[in-house]
Design a protein around this nucleic acid. Sequence first.
DNA 1: TGACAATTTATACGTACGTTCAGATAGTTT
DNA 2: AAACTATCTGAACGTACGTATAAATTGTCA
Lengths: 248, 248
Amino acid sequence: MRDTAVMRDPDTDSRADTGPSDDTPGDCPRPDGRLLRGEATRERVLDAAERLFSAEGVDAVSIRQIAAAAGVTLGVVGFHGGSKTELIRTVLSRRVEALNIARRDRLARVMAGPAPKLDDLVEAYILPYLEYASHDDPQWGAYARLIARIVADDRWYKNVGELYDPMAREYLDAMQQVCPEADRDALVTALTLTVASMLSLVASRARIAGLTGHAGGNAMDHRDTLVSFCVNGMTAIASRKGGPQDGP
Amino acid sequence: MRDTAVMRDPDTDSRADTGPSDDTPGDCPRPDGRLLRGEATRERVLDAAERLFSAEGVDAVSIRQIAAAAGVTLGVVGFHGGSKTELIRTVLSRRVEALNIARRDRLARVMAGPAPKLDDLVEAYILPYLEYASHDDPQWGAYARLIARIVADDRWYKNVGELYDPMAREYLDAMQQVCPEADRDALVTALTLTVASMLSLVASRARIAGLTGHAGGNAMDHRDTLVSFCVNGMTAIASRKGGPQDGP
DNA sequence: TGACAATTTATACGTACGTTCAGATAGTTT
DNA sequence: AAACTATCTGAACGTACGTATAAATTGTCA
């Protein structure tokens, strides 16, 4: 059994607090082409990190593995990615904007319609993720699986939650608008369950394959099942009147 | 930032293939009391591993941390737990029987009734887990969160899936019996989504807390929301006729 | 062309890891 | 009491880790 060194606590990364991104080279590529050379390397590093983090888990991947997968030397990963915590943030930040834009566009289109329905909101939240997860560029698939890992792990999520929570809040507001009677906390819980279902479809291939007995295709094959499951679950929660139904 | 050495690939654990459990001392405590002394230590080690694995993730916890938390020396962990892969299996196996029995009892009770409903089956699957997750003994809570980590990670799940899949199959058979028209693969997917929702409620406290704005109590507080969400989602899937509904 | 800055290489440092094991300790049996 | 075995200790081994940095390289512009 091989062993490797792995960061234990993402909170105690002193380098992560030295500034927004000014210390990370290659962030603001100038038109003179001076940084273009490094920019390509940087992408290779981030791609490799994305692939490995999603496949093995953040804690199980070493900087050296990333360097090898990217075809660069060890120091280059640090040069372009900073510390390991910074690297994870950078990998996630790189694509979050595209996903958020797709979701925001879809949300706006639904809310601009004549009679926005909860079903449409659930679809608008789920489908962009599912589409990106099945994107032609396999890096998007890796990114989608990486999100699933991060969200399921409080320890990492609190480091990157602010990348995704604002979008979730926009959807919650819209849902509340469509279902004014619904209890806000129940909506939060229901959206969390929706997200968990959505992510599990992309991340937990092994379990589904093991139970069906056959491998199954990509996540898109279960698209309708997922949407139907979440829409009906969410509708059930939202149609209950406000106030605490649960617990003591 | 601290770093530690961590197993990279649970598959390449040569010690895991040396036999069922004959090489692990303390497995078959004799009535003569000879092994009782070690048995207590063994429990402390497994408890500590359970707590740390569930809180930090398997890959992020070192044997040394476990030893320290258990109040034993390094070698004792190896003595009672074997290799790290064996230790994880042992930690999971220790409690799985109790959980499976609770589920099987409840399943039998539902199916023995006059008119078994899908709702009851979903409840019978979910509630035992939720009850154990909120058990007075906090180790059960740790175990519940550890399951969530393992199931979400294909890399680990394929090592321990056989502990949980047979029970899932029993439920799938029962569901098929109650809903003969339902498509089997869709049922599998729906059960997977149910499990993902169930686990997320126990594991992803940070996200719910961040979105509601307040900490919230334990998972039991969201019990009714979870059951309602999953029952309605599952019913929607099961009531669709058999054959592939989803995309190509 | 030569100065300059961005990038890359190669190497090193200190630390922590998983695993192993010879020997000490403490119950049990003879 | 002596032999025996399960349990535990303490230390070591070899490996890998994250990070840092001096020197080499590469492309750009004066």
